[in-house]
Computed example of a mutant assay.
Amino acid sequence: MQLLLALFFLLGIPSGAPEIHSLKYFYTASTQVPNFPEFVIVGLVDEYPIEHYNSNTQRLQPKQDWMNKVTEEDPTYWETSTNGALGAQETFKGNIGTVKQRLNQTGGVHIFQYMVGCEWDDETDDVNGFRQYGFDGEDFLIYDQKTETWIAPVQQAVPSKHKLSNDKALMDFHKRYLTQECPDWLKKYVKFGRSSLMRKDLPSVSLLQKTPSSPLTCHATGFYPDRADLFWKKDEEELHEDVVKGEILPNHDGSFQMSVDLDLSGLKDEDWGRYSCVFHLAGGQEVSKRLDKRDIRTNWKTNDGGFPTGAAAGGVVAALLLLTGCIMGLIVCLKKPPQASETSSSSGEDPAMKKGSSEEQSMLKPLHEGRVQRGSSH
């Protein structure tokens, strides 16, 4: 399911320069999901959460300090947006039952999804918009901006597709929002958060090994943002066999760390110089470290009770770094919400089900669409 898979890869690596910026809103209405709000909205700029709302708090709140700058131009931004979110909550709550009936679903756990937003190339000024609806992990309706048409992946969505396609005023609204209003808001948010969104820190890269028979770990720490990759390569070819890649973990200072292991058991001495560990940061910057026995840090002892040359201090530090990474990773896991997580949620509705009601219109608009229509400046 494309919509849900997109959420799993929110932290993927962008294509690099020129910078492609994005504004996305994910709505989720759910029933009988344990320990999870019935309605959630998450707004993201360049995959960083900027706004959050859920039915428990019933208030839209900023997720980045720089988002408070929006009140300099619109003092009622958060109040107005909260009212819009409350209205959307009631709309989604009513329509999820209708969707269940249409798809012949009964009680139990159900998730109703909606994703809307746009991408902007800051070099060419090209814009691409998207809207997508889903139910229980399956695509329901997809808007194709290039052809300005709706696509119905399932038969039950065909009536909705026809209703939307035949509503010229609504189709014009979709086009105007995706091509004009969404990019305007995106450019505004990028301006507010430029120092954070454009921050790029390269890491220090170390080679670590517990014992001579252990896998060799390439460890990168201190990089930012977390859209990065770390891999081993032989000559100019990336290795996929005999390699184990770890997760990206947070450091206490807001930067990140990650590691990738290489099995050395089949490596010939004469081939060591052909291997290197490469760190790739979003935007194309790289750090490469060639495999050299003299650079390996370890804390294993030699036969005489001492440490290999140049290994002692680095080994202790490396062990502490790895231990810290494990602890931080555990904390992150413990803090993760249930399966239908707020950052992995996208929400939507079947516009045909309300037959032209006001609820139908409100469900089709992300938060800032409502603000735009109320005359908020850009």
Rank of each mutant, 00 (worst) to 15 (best):
Val70Trp: 11
Lys146Thr: 11
Asp65Phe: 04
Asp46Ala: 05
Phe36Glu: 15
Gln155Glu: 12
Asn56Arg: 13
Ile111Trp: 02
Glu119Ile: 01
Asp144Val: 05
Thr80Phe: 09
Gln58Ile: 02
Trp78Glu: 10
Glu138Tyr: 13
Lys63Phe: 09
His110Gln: 06
Ile41Tyr: 00
Ile111Lys: 01
Phe39Asp: 09
Met115Asn: 02
Glu119Pro: 00
Leu86Asn: 12
Glu119Asn: 09
Glu148Asp: 14
Asn35Tyr: 04
His52Pro: 00
Asp144Asn: 15
Thr31Tyr: 02
Tyr133Ile: 02
Gly117His: 04
Gln145Trp: 02
Asp46Ile: 05
Leu86Val: 04
Gly137Leu: 08
Asp74Pro: 00
Gln58Lys: 08
Asn95His: 07
Thr106Leu: 12
Pro153Ile: 08
Phe26Cys: 14
Glu123Leu: 15
Phe92Pro: 01
Arg131Glu: 13
Thr149Met: 13
Thr91Asn: 05
Phe36Lys: 14
Glu90Leu: 10
Thr98Asp: 06
Thr149Pro: 01
His110Gly: 04
Gln61Pro: 00
Asp122Thr: 06
Gln61Thr: 15
Val99Ala: 13
Lys63Gln: 15
Phe92Gly: 12
Leu141Met: 04
Asp74Phe: 09
Tyr48Glu: 13
Ser55His: 07
Lys24Ile: 08
Asp121Gly: 03
Phe140Met: 14
Val42Glu: 07
Ala88Ser: 15
Val127Tyr: 03
Asn104Val: 00
Gln113Trp: 03
Val33Ala: 10
Tyr114Met: 05
Trp150Ala: 10
Val116Thr: 07
Thr147Ile: 05
Thr147Met: 10
Gln156Phe: 01
Gly134Glu: 06
Ser81Val: 07
Phe140Lys: 11
Gln132Cys: 03
Gln32Pro: 06
Asn54His: 07
Asp125Asn: 14
Phe140Trp: 12
Thr71Gly: 03
Lys69Cys: 00
Gln132Phe: 01
Leu44His: 10
Thr76Cys: 12
Ile96Glu: 08
Ile41Asn: 03
Asn83Lys: 08
Gln155Asn: 06
Tyr143Trp: 11
Lys146Leu: 14
Phe92Val: 14
Tyr133Thr: 08
Asn128Asp: 15
Gly94Cys: 04
Val33Pro: 02
Asn83Ser: 12
Asn68Tyr: 06
Val45Thr: 12
Phe130Trp: 12
Arg131Gln: 05
Val127Pro: 02
Tyr53Ser: 11
